[in-house]
Simulated scan of single mutants.
Amino acid sequence: MGAVAITGANGFLGRHTRAALREQGEDARRVAVGDAFDLADATSSLEGASRLVHLAGVNRGAEEDVREQNPGFADQIAAALRQADQPPPVVVYANSIQAADGGVYGVAKARAADSLARAAADVGAEFIDLRLPNLFGEHGRPFYNAVTATFSHLLAAGGTPQVDVDRELTLLHAQNAADLLLGTVPLASQRELEEHETVSGLLERLSDQARTYATGEIPDIGTPFDRDLFNTYRSYTFPAHAPVALTKHADARGAFFEVVRSHGGPGQSSFSTTQPGVGRGDHFHRRKIERFTVLSGRATISLRRLFGDEVVEFEVTGDDPVAVDMPTFWAHKIVNTGDDVLYTSFWTNDIFDPDRPDTIAEAV
């Protein structure tokens, strides 16, 4: 794909887009806007890039900020586009379906689109005005990004979310939005990727998933929508609710314990042996759900959230079995810290496809 320049790279959709780029071995050229904007720096970031993805915006706050900052950010990027000797040939704007509703936010987004479209035309670039619906996904900000984030946060904390106004929502997982923005899936597939659900129906789905997962079991994730909702929900449960305790039954014959109960959808189990001092992993997943369970031996499971430095570690042993579920967007690995061979069970929610492995190299 080549270098991709992104504004708003540290925001919710920005992090999802950068994670999608990692699958292609790329990271974003981050372009600052607003008070941190520097024309020379922005122009340098755009030079020779294969694509510009403009994500930065203000969707909540004082009306004046929403009204002025959205087109203001676009004007800054438009200036950098016109200044570049080799501007990106494709300019993509993460617009909103509200751009046509006449509200303060919608009008501001429409003005921003016009500014970018004019600049793209001036430099001969293709302009893509991607109008996105309600986005949801892992690590969204509760009470800010989307109702899905708020419901998930409250459920994970043991709260009881309420529906204030029930209506139908058009929902799109942020990873699907990232694929559209980066051009890795056709723009014509957007409608197929969108889901329609009422606010009360969304809460019911998430509540059912929370109740099932509280027992250590995997809820029905037989559809991509339910899988994406579950990945969203469990991003709010980690690491506080990990690991998952397993009940071990032992008698004179030996020991027995259940590794996973899944309520729906495909799955694949595998098993490995690992020599002392050796590790496995150092990768992350965008959509795949994976569970590690040490059957015999001693190990350390380490996880690091993408674009952060903090590492979470779990000391696990086959004598006291637990399951550790790998959250999406967390690099993870398991290292044999014992003196004997480590025996580990792995379960994933999908059948491995070598053409689409969803296993992306990333050191913990």
Rank of each mutant, 00 (worst) to 15 (best):
V4C: 02
A9R: 01
N10M: 07
G14F: 01
R15A: 04
R15S: 05
L21P: 04
Q24H: 15
D27P: 00
D27V: 04
V33A: 05
V33R: 05
D35Y: 12
A40P: 03
D41M: 10
S44D: 14
E47W: 06
R51D: 02
V53A: 01
V53K: 01
L55P: 01
E64Y: 11
Q69I: 04
Q69T: 09
F73D: 01
F73E: 02
D75T: 03
Q76T: 07
A79R: 15
D85Q: 12
V92T: 06
A99H: 15
A100Y: 10
G102I: 09
G106P: 11
L116D: 06
R118S: 13
A119T: 09
E126S: 08
F127H: 10
F127I: 09
R131N: 06
L132P: 05
L132N: 09
L135H: 01
F136I: 03
H139S: 03
T148W: 01
F151P: 02
L154E: 15
A156W: 06
Q162M: 11
V163W: 12
V165K: 12
R167S: 08
L181V: 05
L182G: 08
G183E: 09
A188P: 02
R191Q: 12
E192D: 11
E195V: 10
E195Y: 14
L202Y: 06
R205E: 14
R205Y: 15
L206Y: 05
S207K: 03
A210I: 02
T215C: 10
I218T: 13
P219F: 11
I221W: 00
P224F: 09
F225R: 09
N231S: 06
R234G: 09
S235M: 12
S235I: 13
Y236C: 05
F238R: 08
A240V: 14
H241Y: 04
A245Q: 14
A245L: 10
H249M: 11
A250Q: 14
A252Y: 07
G254N: 12
F257N: 01
V259E: 08
V259G: 03
V260G: 00
R261K: 08
G267S: 13
F271E: 04
T273E: 13
T273S: 10
G279F: 13
G281C: 05
F284C: 03
F284R: 00
H285S: 07
R286K: 09
R286M: 05
R291L: 15
V294L: 05
S296M: 00
V316T: 10
V324F: 06
M326D: 08
W330P: 02
K333N: 15
N336F: 14
T337Y: 11
D339G: 15
D340M: 06
L342A: 01
Y343K: 07
I351L: 13
R356G: 07
I360M: 13
